[in-house]
Structure formats: C-alpha cells, structure tokens
Computed example of a mutant assay.
Amino acid sequence: MNQESQAKNVAILIYDRVEPLDFVGPFEVFITGSNRGKDLNVYTVAEHNRPVIALGQLSINPSYTIANCPQPDILIIPGGWGARTEMHNVVITDWIKEAFHRVEIVLSVCTGALIIAMTDLLDGLKLTTNRLAINELRAILPSAEILEEARYVDNGKIVLSAGVSAGMDASLYVIERLFGEERALSTARIMEYDWNRV
C-alpha cells in the first residue's frame, strides 16, 4: 500500500495581520501528528505570491497561492486582526466556499470564524470564536447558537475553536477524529502540550 499517496492535504490560510499562534499552533500539531509526513501534507496558502506580514511584523513566505495550491482535504482558517479585513475579501471568501465542497474538514481558529461567517457556511451551526469577538460574530449571524465557553465545537464538517491556543486543542481533536485517540495523545506528548479537551 502506498501510504504517501494517501496523505491528506492540510492547507492553512495565511494573510496580513494573521495571529501567529493561530496558524503556527495548528501547523505544529498537524506536522507532529502526521506520522513523519506519511499521513498529512501540511502547507500554507495565501492569496498572493509574496511574503505575508503577520501580527508583530513576522514575515512568512506562503508555500502556495489559492490559485496553485494542492486540493485541500483539511482547510484551516486562522484569525487575527487581519480577519476583519479578509472577511470582506470576496476572493478569499469565494475560494473558501468553492473549496468547502471538496474538503473533509474546515477548522476555524479564533476570529477565523468571522471570515467563514461571511460565506454563509455557518448558518444553523453551533459556533465559537475568540471571547473578545463574540459580539462581532453575533452581529453577522444574529440567530446563531454561540457557545461562549467552549474551547472548540464540532459540527461535523466544520470545527470551530475559541481564541489562539484553543486552535491547538481543536487541531488535536481533529487528529483524534482522523487517526484515533492514541495518535492525538502521542502528538500532545511529543509537543509537551497540555491538551485541553473541554
């Protein structure tokens, strides 16, 4: 059996003023839980082929653009102050909507929920986001059931997490869903991370 051909593609969207831990935390979880790259192929993707300037002036070179990235099986949408801009970027929201029909899981981290909320993909779901952005999310989806105390919420195809480090907890949860509890616990042990499973 060719394991390499079965590796799932994990695309992590990055954009200007993204919160570093929102994407680096899940990146670390998925590469650590990838069985040395045999089960998961993790990469960053951005709208443009240029360095992305995250919060704190961290410069990141995306692996791909949305025009040339491998088809994702798992799509991660991180948050940060830049989410308030990208939520109005129809190029990004249209790309997410188009990708949604072919992916297995979409994982929102922190205020990444604001971006996904603009795609109409969250209607009728249980939601969470960064505690400081609850009212912003409620303004977009006033009738949504928002679980303010949840670290992460599983809606099947869409998993949403609360702020920053909660994205690592949700990522470990996705690893558990894909590969079982022992893989997730082993990933957390290797990272020396105290997995909050609430």
Rank of each mutant, 00 (worst) to 15 (best):
C69M: 05
T65E: 01
T85A: 11
G79D: 13
Q71G: 06
I60F: 11
L55E: 15
Y64G: 04
P70K: 05
P62F: 02
P78C: 13
G82D: 03
R84T: 10
S63M: 10
A83Q: 01
P51R: 11
I74K: 02
R84Q: 09
G79R: 01
A83I: 05
C69W: 14
R84L: 11
P70G: 04
P51T: 15
P72N: 02
I66Q: 05
W81L: 10
Q71D: 03
P70L: 03
I77A: 08
P70W: 06
P70I: 06
L58N: 14
T85L: 09
L75F: 06
D73H: 00
G82H: 01
A83H: 07
N61S: 08
N68L: 00
P78M: 07
L55F: 15
P62D: 12
I77S: 01
W81K: 14
C69T: 03
G82S: 11
S63E: 09
A67W: 01
S59Y: 07
I60E: 09
W81C: 09
A83G: 06
R84K: 14
P72S: 03
A67N: 12
P78S: 06
L55R: 13
I53A: 15
L75G: 10
P70H: 04
I66E: 03
G82M: 05
Q71V: 04
W81D: 14
I60G: 13
L58M: 12
C69I: 04
I74A: 08
A54C: 14
S63D: 09
A54I: 13
V52K: 11
L58Y: 14
P51A: 12
Q57Y: 15
S63W: 03
T85H: 12
S59C: 08
L58V: 07
G82C: 03
T85F: 10
P62Q: 02
W81Y: 07
I60Y: 14
A67P: 14
S63I: 04
I60H: 09
P72T: 00
G82Y: 01
T65C: 03
I76W: 01
I77F: 02
D73C: 02
N61D: 05
I53W: 06
P62S: 08
A54N: 10
L75V: 10
C69R: 13
Q57G: 13
G79K: 02
I77K: 00
P70A: 04
G80F: 04
G56S: 12
R84N: 08
